[in-house]
Computed example of a mutant assay.
Amino acid sequence: MTAVADNRPFDVSVDRETLARLTGREREVLRHLAKGESNRVLARNLGIAERTVRAHVTSVVRKLDVGSRFEAGLVAFHHYAALAEESTSS
């Protein structure tokens, strides 16, 4: 059995221009993904419906051009400071 990481390395290189395409709420959701929060916990922390969280996560995954919420979380983890910086300047 071959590990997924052997087949597809996780490329978390995302430029500032790509991050800038995210809305403020999407950046906020992405920062929570970096913490490994479930949709339920994320919804509770943001005061929004779980269905809305799923919509935001789907949009983030699409805009970042990654394959999963896990990969989006890796992007957020590696670019956490830039995401926080952009949210305060917006």
Rank of each mutant, 00 (worst) to 15 (best):
G24T: 08
I48T: 00
T18L: 06
V12A: 10
A49G: 14
A84W: 04
R27S: 05
A55V: 10
V41A: 05
T23S: 14
N39P: 03
R40W: 07
R51P: 00
L22R: 00
L33M: 14
A82L: 03
H56C: 07
D11N: 15
R62L: 12
S90D: 15
S89R: 13
L42W: 03
R62A: 09
S68E: 12
V12S: 11
R31L: 03
G73A: 11
V29D: 03
A49K: 10
T18N: 08
L19A: 01
V53S: 04
R16T: 15
E17L: 10
R40M: 11
T23L: 07
A82W: 01
E26I: 02
A76T: 06
V57N: 02
V53G: 05
L19H: 00
K63C: 05
S68D: 12
G67N: 14
T52M: 02
V60H: 08
S90E: 13
S89N: 12
E26P: 01
L64P: 00
R8M: 12
R31C: 06
S13W: 12
Y80K: 11
S87P: 02
F70W: 07
R51F: 14
F10L: 15
G67M: 11
F70E: 13
V41R: 07
E86M: 03
T88F: 02
V41E: 13
R54T: 11
A84Q: 10
V66D: 07
V53L: 01
T23D: 11
A76K: 01
I48L: 07
E26G: 00
Y80Q: 04
G47C: 07
D15N: 13
E85R: 08
V29R: 05
T2H: 13
A34N: 04
R62M: 01
F77E: 05
S90R: 13
E26N: 04
A55N: 13
L30S: 11
G36D: 08
R51K: 15
F77R: 12
V66W: 09
D11W: 01
S38Q: 09
T58A: 15
E50T: 13
A55M: 13
L30R: 03
G24S: 10
E86V: 01
E85S: 07
R69W: 08
S90L: 10
R54C: 01
V57W: 00
V61K: 09
H79T: 02
H78T: 08
G24C: 04
L74E: 12
L74A: 13
A84I: 03
F10T: 14
T88N: 13
N39E: 12
L46T: 01
L64H: 02
S89D: 14
N45S: 09
D65Y: 09
E17I: 05
A76E: 06
L30W: 06
R21D: 09
S38R: 09
E17P: 02
R44C: 03
R44M: 08
H78I: 06
A55P: 00
H79E: 04
R62Y: 08
R27I: 06
R44A: 14
E28T: 09
I48M: 11
S38G: 11
A82I: 10
V66T: 12
G47F: 12
L46D: 01
L42V: 00
V53C: 05
E71T: 08
G67S: 13
S90V: 13
K63M: 02
S89W: 04
A84L: 01
R31A: 06
A81P: 00
H56E: 04
R27A: 03
E37W: 11
K63Q: 05
A72M: 08
R54D: 09
V4E: 15
G47N: 06
E86Q: 15
